[in-house]
Each structure stands twice: as C-alpha cells, then as structure tokens.
Simulated assay, not measured.
Amino acid sequence: MPDDTYTFDDVSVVMGTYNEEAAIDTVLTDIAAVTDDRANVVCVDSSQDRTPEIAREHGATVVEQPPQGYGVAVHEAITTPDRPVVVTTDCDDTYPMERLPDFLDAINDGYDVVSGDRLYHGADAMPDTNRYGNIAFALLASLLLGERVHDTTTGMRAYRRRVIEDITWTENTGLSAELLLRPLARGYRVRELPIDYRERAGETTLDPLTGGLAIAKSILTVGVEERHR
C-alpha cells in the first residue's frame, strides 16, 4: 500500500457534456450518493439544452466551450481540477457510478490508471457495431503494444494526476484510447477493471463509421509513436 491513501475528498469526477439533459441529473445524483457528496465534479460543456443548468444545480463546476470534439472537451475536463485523483466518465448514464469505490481502491493499491472494461461481461447494451468495433480496437492496440488490452475506448477510468501531467496528449476523437495506450507503453501501472455497461439515456451524437475510423487512426498513430520513442 502506498504512503498516500486517497479518499473521495481527493477525487474529481470529470466529463465532457453535450446535450445530455436526459441523463445528467441521474449521473450527478449517483456520484453524490456514492461519494457522500465529497468528490469534486467538473463538466466541460458544449450543450444547447439544459445540461449545464442542471449540472450547476448539483454543484458541479461547468466549463463552457464551443463544440470542438470529444477529445478537446475531455482534455479540458482532466486538466481543470487540481485534486490528486481524476476519474473520467460519460454523462449518458451508461457507466456504474456505484463502482467508484473500487476504482479508488485500485488507485490506493498502487495503480496509476484504472480502466473500466465494458466488454468483460459482454456489453449487451452496446450496439453490435460498436461492440465489434471495440473488440477490433483492442486487438489492434494489443498487437501494437505487445500487451493484451481489452477495452481501449471506455469512458470510465481513474488516473493519478501525475500521469495526466507527465504525458502530452495529442488526439481528439481517439483520446480515450490514447489515455490508456500511452501510460501502458511508458510503464505506468495500469489495471483493467471489469464493469457493467448500461443502455444510454438520450441520443448519441457520434457517427459509428467516421468515429470508428478516427479512433483506429489514433490507435495506429499512438502505437507507432510509442514504439519509436
């Protein structure tokens, strides 16, 4: 066990939000309940609906920015808070906030990155195209890194702040994969933790074809860069 043992007073839960008024209330209510309202919440928002208003009603810090893509929003979200542990999630109620204590326990066990593996239990709520695409992404990443990876694009992860600060992040749509692959390639302690995945509330804004191609390109780019560092 490391000398520093973190509690939820040391945790920021962050997310990019875009027109998620159907789910944001549930997600923030669940975070508050699980963490006894001790975790700091940051939403980087580009919405045109009531998402930022609802987030502020829950006491979240809302950083507004024009729509510039997934990675730009999440990059802002992970670098805004100053607490030593940063947990990313999506705001569509697909991720199990009740597992936050398990992610924090893994950080306290010495892991630098704890990544939620949605595919372990089958991810039946995930559309088939997305599920098969995510399996392919994981196989591609595993081949490039020479290490088995199971879910490269999960939105639920915990990071020690030093990992976020020590690495230069370059990707946009593929940032979720980059946030796992670069730490793995550089020898940080990474654990994939099986989680359940629920059907999303509200409509997705990501086109599976163009988004999938962008993610695959990011995995190739990051994998090649890290092999030649």
Rank of each mutant, 00 (worst) to 15 (best):
residue 211 G to M: 01
residue 99 R to S: 10
residue 172 N to E: 01
residue 100 L to P: 09
residue 209 L to Y: 09
residue 33 A to E: 11
residue 37 D to V: 11
residue 52 P to Q: 05
residue 179 L to A: 04
residue 147 E to A: 14
residue 75 H to D: 14
residue 153 T to F: 15
residue 97 M to K: 14
residue 183 P to T: 04
residue 111 Y to V: 05
residue 130 N to Q: 12
residue 72 V to Q: 11
residue 34 V to W: 05
residue 168 T to I: 07
residue 42 V to C: 10
residue 149 V to Q: 15
residue 2 P to K: 13
residue 197 Y to G: 09
residue 111 Y to C: 05
residue 126 M to Q: 12
residue 129 T to M: 04
residue 192 E to S: 13
residue 215 I to Q: 00
residue 98 E to Y: 05
residue 52 P to M: 03
residue 164 I to K: 03
residue 192 E to R: 03
residue 91 C to N: 10
residue 26 T to Y: 14
residue 198 R to C: 11
residue 122 G to I: 06
residue 133 G to N: 04
residue 166 D to W: 14
residue 102 D to F: 11
residue 74 V to I: 09
residue 193 L to S: 09
residue 57 E to K: 10
residue 131 R to N: 14
residue 100 L to C: 03
residue 180 L to Q: 00
residue 191 R to E: 09
residue 216 A to P: 12
residue 221 T to G: 02
residue 201 A to M: 15
residue 45 D to H: 04
residue 9 D to S: 15
residue 176 S to G: 06
residue 19 N to W: 15
residue 219 I to S: 00
residue 4 D to V: 12
residue 2 P to G: 10
residue 209 L to Q: 15
residue 181 L to N: 05
residue 31 I to N: 09
residue 169 W to G: 01
residue 67 P to Q: 15
residue 188 Y to D: 09
residue 141 A to D: 01
residue 40 N to G: 13
residue 78 I to V: 11
residue 218 S to D: 03
residue 108 N to K: 07
residue 144 L to P: 00
residue 97 M to S: 09
residue 173 T to C: 05
residue 202 G to R: 13
residue 45 D to I: 04
residue 210 T to D: 05
residue 97 M to E: 09
residue 47 S to K: 10
residue 226 E to K: 00
residue 131 R to T: 07
residue 64 E to G: 07
residue 100 L to M: 14
residue 155 G to S: 04
residue 107 I to T: 03
residue 157 R to T: 02
residue 35 T to H: 01
residue 77 A to Q: 15
residue 186 R to N: 04
